[in-house]
Amino acid sequence: MKQKFDIIESTCVPLPVENVDTDQIIPARFLKATGRDEKFFGENLFRDWRFHADGTPEPSFVLNDPRYSGCILVAGRNFGSGSSREHAAWAIAGYGFRVVISSFFADIHKNNELNNFVLPVVVSEGFLSELFASISADPKMKVRVDVPSQRVTNLATGRSERFELNSYKKYCLMNALDDIDWLLEQKEAIEDFEKKSRR
């Protein structure tokens, strides 16, 4: 959902698992929807880790642990690998996350998050492991994600890092604009390109 980004301060939900693939984020059987109801996808986020086959919650999974809440998901290295399904980003957004912090994201999923106004924040391995330790020590600790200045800060330890975000995407996020809005203004340039390259 299009929404403006500025400064976000929130508690975090920790998922210290590496190589979380998009089949785990949202299993294939939930991809049959023809609509974009984020609530539906959010309810099934991490479905098979979060619920047993009979629908009862798995108490040890972090989304079922009442100590953790907030709009920032903190995940292990190589988050979002595998399938290109944008449903994974819809599920993350639908659950209520606005930011995902990890030390490494898979390419397609990273774009999908950005296109759905979920901000992937890439931090160093050192920042990430310290952040997991901070959350573990105090689930109520907060992280500040400052989009205008591109800084992420662990407010428990004060450790702060700059994160990458190109100025085009930053402008889009801060003004709730998407790529299609931009592309639709390029009709002439596209037609010129087609003529020039005989496509």
Binding site: S84, R85, E86, A89, D107, I108, N111, N112, N115, N116, N166, D178, D179, I180, W182, L183, L184, Q186, K187, I190
Partner: peptide, 22 residues
């Protein structure tokens, strides 16, 4: 290469997508 649904919409709408060059 594979793309997400928002990017499919971009191509349907403009035959283009916005991408960082890998």
């Amino acid at each position: 290469f594979g793309i997400g649904t928002s990017e499919v919409e971009m191509v349907l709408a403009s035959q283009c997508i916005l991408q960082q060059k890998p």
